[in-house]
Amino acid sequence: MATRPVFIPVRNGAQLFEVRNFEFLWHPGFAESQKRKNVRGLHLAASNAGLGRVLEISTKSEEELGRRLSAFSLKYRLGDKDIPMESLYQGSKVFTKGGPYIDIYDKTPIEAKRDQRIRTSGNIVWFQIEGTVYSSSPTNAFYDWVYIRCLYRHEDFLTRNLSSMDGFSDIEFNPERSINSQARALAILMSLSACGRLKESAEDYELFRSKISRTFSTL
């Protein structure tokens, strides 16, 4: 058995998401078929609890939109280049012993995550893009903000296609071992959209960070 979260947008109030955890039968293994069995198991458990429409946000999603919204599929516009979101995130890290390693911007998402410097340069102290420094607190704020920056100009499309969803899952996200979740980032985006604060939050990191901090203080 395993327990995984579903992230639920909050369409009014100051909180940016809710989280509900569900237990289900876990199918071990790295095969895509095993991953999708786990997605189905999580979604069935959520449905039995009243969350009938949950979209998996990852490359393991059975829905094309879920795969398109994966962090491995998104691009971040930087100058005149479109950089894979995951590569931008990893390459912007500044550690106690080095960084940012902006050559990672030119790597694939998988190559970016596996770059040895990410593991051997010490603790993250902040993030940096083109000389601008971004705080690393709360720990997930920069990742969520970059995710939202990739998508906020498509707000109308997202609203049309996702407003009926009860929540979002990310089967690879284990809160006991991981910090970032693309499903949580999307739930936050949808909450900001519902209250009319998406564009200003995507364009102002400190504003976004303050909203995230208030949400985590209530969890």
Rank of each mutant, 00 (worst) to 15 (best):
F72S: 13
S73K: 02
S73D: 03
L74Q: 15
L74E: 05
L74W: 03
K75D: 11
Y76T: 05
Y76F: 14
Y76S: 04
Y76P: 00
Y76L: 10
R77N: 09
L78G: 04
L78V: 10
L78Y: 10
L78K: 04
L78M: 11
L78E: 08
G79P: 09
G79I: 12
D80P: 03
K81N: 05
K81A: 09
K81L: 10
D82Q: 13
D82T: 05
D82M: 14
D82A: 15
I83W: 02
I83H: 01
P84R: 07
S87E: 06
S87M: 07
L88P: 01
L88F: 14
Q90A: 04
S92P: 00
K93G: 03
V94G: 08
V94T: 09
V94S: 09
F95N: 08
F95M: 15
F95L: 15
T96A: 15
T96I: 12
K97R: 15
K97L: 15
G98N: 07
G98E: 06
G99H: 02
P100T: 11
D103Q: 11
D103H: 13
D103E: 15
I104N: 00
I104H: 00
Y105D: 12
Y105K: 06
Y105S: 11
Y105E: 11
K107H: 07
K107V: 05
K107N: 09
T108V: 02
T108G: 06
P109I: 11
I110Y: 14
E111N: 05
E111K: 04
E111M: 09
A112E: 03
A112Y: 00
